[in-house]
Nucleic acid binder design. Structure first.
Ligand SMILES: [Mn+2]
Ligand SMILES: [Mn+2]
Ligand SMILES: [Zn+2]
Ligand SMILES: [Zn+2]
Lengths: 138, 138
DNA sequence: ATCCAGAATTGGATCTTGTCCAAAACCGAA
DNA sequence: TTCGGTTTTGGACAAGATCCAATTCTGGAT
């Protein structure tokens, strides 16, 4: 059983067949699927699973902190199971590919105290944009 | 006439009444309105302007590099006329307020060469999240 | 001043993403 | 086995955005 499923069971989550296949699709640390992609992949494993259940399950996983929502453009949100290791994203502007990259130093540190305007800051998202090797001008 | 309108005219843009009021609404460097907010404000100045024209005009301004699109959440995109000075955003998770903040050092520098995976990197977006003074736990 | 072709605008249809809801199915404790 | 709470489901609904064919506008040519 995957780490993810194990942690969920430890939290008293009822492990239904539907939740199991959603977790299974997300398993592996380097995917960034949309909800509809996850639904399509889940249907391969459990043909009768509904779109609503996929959205419900993803919402619960996000609330539990097991999955991150990533909005790299104004399109569909992507769901990132790599919630345990802080990381940032490198996005191809042409094909939308997303890669995980890892911070050098604390990105929060780059915001000077004089630029906080009384906010209580809880996090920072960094998205690098460019062209991937496949899409770059050959 | 605003700087923005002047630059647009210099580029040979046809300055219609509709485009003028959209530019007028965006004038001033610290706004981050949604397309519908811009439409509502534009209607005050030119009652018959359509939503489609607001979207068309915003799209053109973005193509020209005069306005930036900002997607801070999965909701409506926001349009940022402050495209001439590199800056980052500080977003309140409770009320959605956006403030401009200014980088200390080049945020691009924080991505190690070993983490570029053959991408040609063209830019970076940094979004700090937290609670604004109004929304913070009093 | 008038005409005309290309540019711009318009309202509504359409699409995508996501949420909501009431009914049905499921599950596990008693 | 029964029963109440939990989960799932399909379809309705909503927001944001795009598309499109019809119309209006515009500025240069005459
Ligand atoms: Mn990731
Ligand atoms: Mn800004
Ligand atoms: Zn690419
Ligand atoms: Zn706030």
């Amino acid at each position: 059983m995957s780490d993810l499923l194990e942690r969920l069971r430890d939290r008293g989550w009822r492990l239904t067949a539907q939740r199991r296949v959603v977790a299974q699709v997300l398993d592996g640390d380097h995917v960034h699927y949309t909800a509809d992609e996850i639904h399509a992949l889940a249907v391969n494993l459990l043909p009768e699973i509904s779109r609503a259940t996929v959205y419900n399950t993803l919402g619960e996983l996000v609330s539990l902190g097991e999955v991150l929502e990533v909005s790299t453009d104004g399109r569909a949100k992507r769901y990132d199971p790599n919630a345990r290791h802080a990381h940032q994203h490198l996005v191809c502007d042409a094909c939308g590919t997303i890669r995980d990259v890892h911070p050098a130093g604390d990105p929060l540190g780059s915001l000077p105290a004089t630029e906080r305007y009384g906010f209580t800051i809880s996090g920072v998202e960094v998205t690098y944009r460019g062209l991937c090797p496949d899409c770059g001008t050959a």
